[in-house]
């Protein structure tokens, strides 16, 4: 399967990428590792007129200690997150989840910024950043702004990023406490049919993969935990207020069931 034809522009600096976006805006898509975008283009579900390749901007690949937070360059690859000593010590959930994305070949190419900007509710990293209450930094022609992860995912494959903006950095609070990541799928490398990220840090947080049109927090479960509910009781409320999708892999009802079971297991694993 061959993608539809497009103009290819390679940006050698962030400013160059921003100026191409300012010029071509709505017609352009950013290409980082390409592991979300190229499969869609090959199926012709995406047919951008212009691809702006930012994969060579190596100065956007880093994991840095910023006191209470860890800052991650948007072009940091999953593999580099997986083996980052700083993450393994300070935000182990992120290193672990990055190591569960796709397969090794995907992790050698895919980037955290690409995964977040793609906004797929079935992806693992968006749920982890949501659970961590991360912050996303976007640069546009008119300057830089920060967007809380809780406001970033606006719809199916849609985010708060504007057409002229580049996601440059992701910041997450240090969270060295217990975590659990549960991913239910039928084949080794598949997307999660349902996934759960749970953090024991106070207040306890739970985010869900593939349970709505965006990555979401299990707010009813979180509220129950905050009110002192036990794991099993809190887990019963995992899908409250959500409309999980129904597809080849699972019906809406089965997803609700999976969420209840996986959330309970995740909460028990972190000792809640």
């Amino acid at each position: 399967m061959i993608p539809a034809a497009f103009d290819y522009q390679r940006a050698s600096t962030l400013d160059e990428a921003l100026s191409i976006l300012a010029d071509r805006g709505e017609d352009a898509k950013l290409l980082a590792g390409g592991h979300s975008l190229l499969p869609l283009m090959r199926l012709r579900l995406a047919t951008p007129a212009v691809l702006v390749d930012i994969g060579g901007l190596r100065d956007l690949s880093y994991v840095q200690d910023r006191g209470d937070e860890v800052a991650i360059g948007a072009l940091t690859r999953h593999r580099d997150l997986q083996i980052s000593e700083l993450l393994l010590n300070q935000v182990p959930v992120l290193a672990h989840v990055a190591g569960q994305v796709g397969d090794p070949q995907v992790r050698h190419r895919g980037t955290i910024g690409g995964s977040l900007a793609h906004g797929d509710p079935a992806s693992d990293l968006p749920a982890a950043i949501l659970a961590l209450d991360g912050t996303l930094c976007a640069r546009g022609t008119s300057g830089e702004r920060t967007i809380p992860a809780t406001e970033f995912f606006t719809g199916f494959l849609e985010t708060a990023l504007r057409p002229d903006e580049v996601l440059t950095e992701i910041r997450v609070p240090k969270s060295p406490g217990k975590f659990s990541f549960k991913k239910f799928n039928r084949r080794a490398q598949d997307w999660a049919i349902v996934g759960v990220v749970a953090l024991s840090d106070s207040p306890a947080r739970v985010a869900l993969v593939n349970m709505a049109s965006t990555p979401v927090r299990a707010s009813a479960t979180e509220a129950a935990l905050a009110a002192g509910a036990a794991a099993n009781e809190a887990a019963q409320r995992a899908s409250e207020g959500l409309e999980p999708p129904s597809d080849t892999n699972a019906t809406t009802e089965f997803r609700r069931h999976l969420a209840t079971v996986l959330v309970r297991r995740a909460l028990e694993e972190v000792g809640l």
Binding site: R10, L31, G34, L38, D53, Q105, V106, H108, R109
Partner: peptide, 13 residues
């Protein structure tokens, strides 16, 4: 030196 799926990369990348 690292494994990649060459069907999911542009030659230009």
């Amino acid at each position: 030196g690292e494994s990649v799926k060459s069907c999911t990369m542009l030659a230009l990348q």
